[in-house]
Design a protein around this nucleic acid. Structure first.
Lengths: 148, 148
DNA sequence: AATGATAATGAAAACCATTTCCAATAAGAA
DNA sequence: TTCTTATTGGAAATGGTTTTCATTATCATT
C-alpha cells in the first residue's frame, strides 16, 4: 500500500499549503517520465482543472524547485523542462540529447561508476575553489538514431 | 610567430566571408576567458566599431556555433553565454556554477581522468542507444566562497 | 574600373517564454 | 464567523532572441 507521496510533508514543514492546483501539477509530473515544459504541464493540468492558470503553473514550478521536489533543466530548445527529483520512484540518471531533433534519452547505466568519479572530483574541487558543491549535471550531445 | 587564427580557414571552406563585424566578434571572444553574453559581446564590439548592430552579433554567434568555432552555454541566468571551443588556446574544461550569484569558475583539474571515464561511457551509450555522441558537458552547481 | 549576383548588415518590429501587477478568492487560525 | 495571510488567475509588462526588409558590402567576372 503506497503511503502519501514523499513530498507531502515538505509543504507543511515549509509553511506552504498543498492546494489543488499544486497537487494537480505534482500529479502530472508524477505520472510521466518525460521532461515536460511549463506549457505542457499547464495543458495537462488544464484538461482536468480548467480553472488553473498558466501563471500558477510557473509559480508552482518555481516553488517545487525551491523545495527540491523537482528539477529544472535546459536542453537548449528555448524552454525550461521539469522532472521529479531523484527519489525512490526516480533513479539518478543523466541525459543524452539529440542536437538535431531535441529528443532526450534518460540513461542510468554507469551511474555508480560515474558517481564515484564525480564524487571524488567534487571533493577536491570543493577544497581547491572553496565551493560548496550541491549537485552536478552531465549531458551528452549528439545525434539520435533517427537523425544521424 | 603566431600564424593566422585557426578558424580563418573554416570560413572560406564553408563559403562564408570573414567580414569586419565577424572578425571583431571573434577578436572579442579571443581576448577574454570570460563567458560573455550576446549583449556583452555587442557592447565590447560596439566600442571599437559603433556601426555593428546587435542583430549581427546574434547572427554571427549562431554561425560560429554552427561552424564549431564557439560554444553556447546556459548557466541559468536567462541569457546564453559563449566561449571559444576547445583548441590549442583553450584547454578542455568544465564549469563550477554558483547557484546564488551566478559566478562561473572554469576548472581543468581531473580532465584526463574524466575524459577517460566519460569516453568509456560514451562508447557504450553510443552502442546501446544507437546515438552518435559528439560532446558532453559537465556542470557542478553549488555556492561559491562569497555566497556560502 | 564597372557590372552583376549574392552574402551580409542594421534598425525596427515581431516573437515568445517567463514575470510582474493587482484585485479577487481560498485556507487556516482565533 | 471573522480576521489574517497565502494563493490564485488574467492581463500587462519584460527581456532575450529572431524575423523582416530594404540597404550595403563583397567577390567573381567582365
Amino acid at each position: 500500500m503506497p503511503g502519501p507521496p514523499w513530498w507531502y510533508g515538505r509543504f507543511q514543514d515549509a509553511g506552504y499549503r498543498l492546494t489543488l492546483p499544486r497537487q494537480a501539477i505534482l500529479g502530472t509530473l508524477s505520472r510521466t517520465s518525460k521532461h515536460l515544459s511549463a506549457e505542457e504541464i499547464y495543458l495537462s493540468v488544464h484538461r482536468a482543472y480548467p480553472a488553473v492558470g498558466l501563471t500558477t503553473v510557473y509559480r508552482t514550478l518555481e516553488l517545487l524547485v525551491r523545495l527540491g521536489i523537482i528539477s529544472k533543466f535546459d536542453f537548449g530548445d528555448g524552454r525550461s523542462r521539469y522532472e521529479l527529483t531523484t527519489s525512490r520512484q526516480r533513479k539518478h540518471h543523466h541525459h543524452l540529447i539529440c542536437s538535431r531533433c531535441g529528443r532526450v534519452i534518460d540513461y542510468t547505466d554507469f551511474i555508480d561508476e560515474e558517481t564515484e568519479v564525480l564524487g571524488k572530483i567534487e571533493r577536491v574541487l570543493s577544497q581547491k575553489y572553496n565551493f560548496r558543491i550541491n549537485n552536478h549535471r552531465l549531458h551528452f550531445y549528439g545525434l539520435c538514431d533517427k537523425c544521424k
